[in-house]
């Protein structure tokens, strides 16, 4: 039987500060000019290097090269992937621009594979909405560029934004799967380490002994707050609105606490040793997720003595 799996997408618009060399290069692209950096040996590198490969000195000499160049090698793409420069079949190519000594990578729009070849002369197709970014080059296309059409190069670009969006499938372990399926039935299960006999909730390889877990143990949904924190601050990625209390809750029958929310009590009354019970969501909403337990709240039992949880903070 396959264990539970679910998609996970990670996305962020990264803000790349460019520094003096790349900042001028991107400004050039914005203004329809291509700049390369000239190294101590006289070679012109496009895209520009920031430091000389031989002397390692910072490079300051940027020179303009042509927006027309020659295909050095290529690879055809039948099905473009998310984020690539064109959404129809195209060729990746290393293209040596006239005046440059090194080739650069970009997409070439030839329509069909039979039109791309080594030695093909290609020119830049500029993006209609330049922002000072490598993608101000929309792609290359067959042909040669007319005489210079760009304006003078304006101020260097400071930051370029680069969205990164990746998709994963998160697959659960056998133990995690068992735990989640029990939660869907309103039960909390742990597993006992066959070596140290400690009960882990959720169950997992025993981190102390490095052995697979053994006996499945059902624990209660009552426990003790061993320690806690009052979160008053908003931060990126946060799912809840502050203030809220996140506590370590040692469930009765478990040997390791789980972090959870403590509600139903003013935050200044949450304390170490407080006895709490799980508040489950409406049964109709249960699924294979820890979110079936909405939060914990005080259950009125007398506080647990410090010694009973001192080892579990």
């Amino acid at each position: 039987m396959d264990t539970l799996a679910a998609p996970l997408t990670i996305a962020f618009d990264y803000t790349r500060s460019l520094g003096p060399v790349l900042g001028r290069f991107m400004a050039g692209l914005r203004d329809h000019r291509v700049l390369g950096s000239r190294t101590a040996d006289g070679r012109v590198h496009v895209p520009p290097l920031e430091f000389d490969p031989d002397t390692l000195a910072p490079l300051t000499d940027l020179v303009e090269v042509s927006p027309t160049g020659t295909v050095v090698t290529w690879a055809w793409v039948d099905q473009p992937l998310e984020g690539q420069p064109l959404d129809h079949p195209f060729a990746w190519a290393l293209i040596r621009l006239d005046g440059a000594d090194t080739p650069m990578l970009h997409a070439v729009d030839t329509g069909t594979e039979d039109k791309i070849k080594i030695g093909l002369r290609v020119r830049i197709r500029w993006s209609p909405s330049p922002t000072g970014h490598i993608r101000d080059i929309a792609c290359f296309e067959p042909g040669t560029a007319p005489e210079r059409t760009g304006h003078e190069i304006g101020d260097a670009v400071t930051i370029m934004t680069t969205p990164i969006r990746l998709h994963y499938t998160h697959t659960t372990s056998v133990e995690e799967d068992r735990y989640l399926r029990a939660l869907a039935e309103g039960r909390i299960v742990g597993q006992r380490c066959p070596a140290c006999c400690k009960v882990y909730v959720p169950p997992r390889v025993c981190p102390a002994d490095g052995v697979a877990p053994g006996e499945v143990v059902e624990v209660t949904d009552k426990g003790t707050v061993t320690t806690f924190c009052v979160v008053n601050v908003p931060f990126a990625g946060q799912r809840l609105t502050p203030p809220y209390v996140v506590a370590q809750v040692l469930l009765d029958g478990a040997d390791i606490p789980i972090p959870h929310l403590i509600l139903g009590v003013p935050s200044d009354q949450v304390r170490m040793g407080l006895r709490v019970s799980a508040v489950w969501r409406d049964r109709a909403d249960w699924s294979t997720t820890p979110e079936n337990i909405d939060h914990f709240e005080p259950n009125g039992e007398p506080d647990a003595p410090y010694e009973s949880y001192a080892e579990h903070q």
Partner: peptide, 27 residues
């Protein structure tokens, strides 16, 4: 776990190459 062909694009230069998402097989 992920689309390796795309993920590996993040090993290329973050300013002038990776934003084009060159896939590993094409490279």
């Amino acid at each position: 776990a992920g689309d390796l062909n795309r993920v590996l694009a993040l090993q290329t230069d973050p300013y002038t190459v990776a934003p084009l998402w060159p896939d590993a097989i094409s490279l």
